[in-house]
Design a protein around this nucleic acid. Structure first.
Lengths: 216, 216
DNA sequence: TATCTTTGCAAGTGATTACTTACTTATAAA
DNA sequence: TTTATAAGTAAGTAATCACTTGCAAAGATA
């Protein structure tokens, strides 16, 4: 009896976000479990059965919230766009000095990927796994946007005469793209050694040096 | 004496052309098909059935030459070590000027990954897919060695007073690692736009500038 | 109270997976 | 020529896959 009322209370608490919320809560749980499995157990263990056990549901219940396994991945993809891309855009479009923006941009980018470790693995592995054109197109747009936002900061710095105007913004942006990816690789391959803060600072230093370099 | 030399000749023929060669030829065919499937059809189509059809054999025949599917991948991994890593090491240990070595190093590295497109995808996807410790360890060693070889060139340049001695060789090596990976991504996502030669030259220019940068 | 929607589960579905088995055939050594 | 071995196949195997179905029950609404 006591247990029952406790359970009721808990359920009523959940209700505060209203009935349908249960669906959205489940969706979040499933997506979270997806990333956990990918970064913790590997992509091949991302079966609907294993996923179900992670969220303490039956396998069939998964399909109440996502109509296919692929839909889960696409939904995560959409989340990354909302969370990461929009934030990077905001930082890039700030009115602060380019150097400050650059550092904030890099720190945010790297921190996000650190906190959401499974995301990078998911995006790349899924695209390579499926070789699906829609996925590749989305992934391409994803990188293109990051390069655009990063490039905006560089452009602004050049316009202000802070950074060297002879550099190819596009190439630096491409070089930049490699940084978070490298971090993710090192973080996964040598987690015991990898230092996030050190990595951030060192890379910011290198990019800064590269930008002012040809001023000499 | 005559019989002995005859036998020797036969054995030499065996090694190069006949019988046993069939096995090694098949192995090469199977590994080639593996990379073709991965870069052309995606990782999920790398089934032993599909693999068999690519080399025009029955599925069972595959297992005459590799005792498991995983063995094929490990064998490819071994090939990459022999082909790419040893070449990069040779270039790094040459007695030519560091600038020249650096360019040769980068060009060779990028060209290899361009010609063997499936390799990068295979290494990363497989490690993320399986989340296997042995694979991760090998992949880590793989990156570590490339960074070591690259770092040797940088060290030599610094020792000769050509490049800035205050730079962190380790961080530049990490930054460098991202370049071939970025290339592979761009090559796969936007193959119609991507220009290999342009990419190589531009990245070499950036790294060169970075190295001399702090001399000012 | 009656009804409707959402959420859940148990028990399936056919398809596909890596790999095996039992047997055949080509080839090269003895 | 005989014999041994490597290379091949057809037809399996059990396991797992993503996903479906039929039904139950909780919760909100009326």
């Amino acid at each position: 009896m006591i247990t029952e009322s406790k359970q009721q209370n808990r359920e009523e608490k959940m209700k505060t976000v209203v009935e349908r919320a249960s669906g959205t809560v489940r969706k979040k749980q499933i997506k979270k479990a997806t990333l956990e499995i990918i970064s913790g157990e590997g992509f091949k263990n991302l079966s609907t059965k294993n996923l179900a056990s992670h969220v303490h549901l039956s396998e069939g219940a998964i399909f109440r919230h996502f109509h296919s396994k692929n839909d889960i991945i696409l939904s995560i993809f959409s989340d990354v766009k909302d969370d990461l891309l929009k934030s990077l855009q905001k930082i890039a479009e700030k009115q602060t000095p380019p150097q400050k923006r650059l550092e904030e941009f890099m720190r945010f980018h790297i921190k996000y990927l650190k906190l959401n470790n499974g995301v990078t693995i998911l995006l790349f592995t899924e695209a390579a796994y499926q070789n699906n054109n829609l996925l590749k197109k989305q992934l391409n747009q994803f990188f293109w946007l990051i390069k655009q936002y990063f490039g905006k900061i560089i452009h602004d710095g050049i316009a202000l005469g802070i950074w060297n105007s002879t550099l190819s913004v596009d190439t630096i942006s491409s070089l930049y793209i490699g940084i978070p990816i490298t971090m993710n690789i090192e973080m996964n391959l040598i987690p015991e050694i990898f230092s996030y803060d050190n990595f951030c600072s060192q890379m910011f230093l290198l990019i800064s040096r590269l930008l002012v370099c040809a001023e000499q």
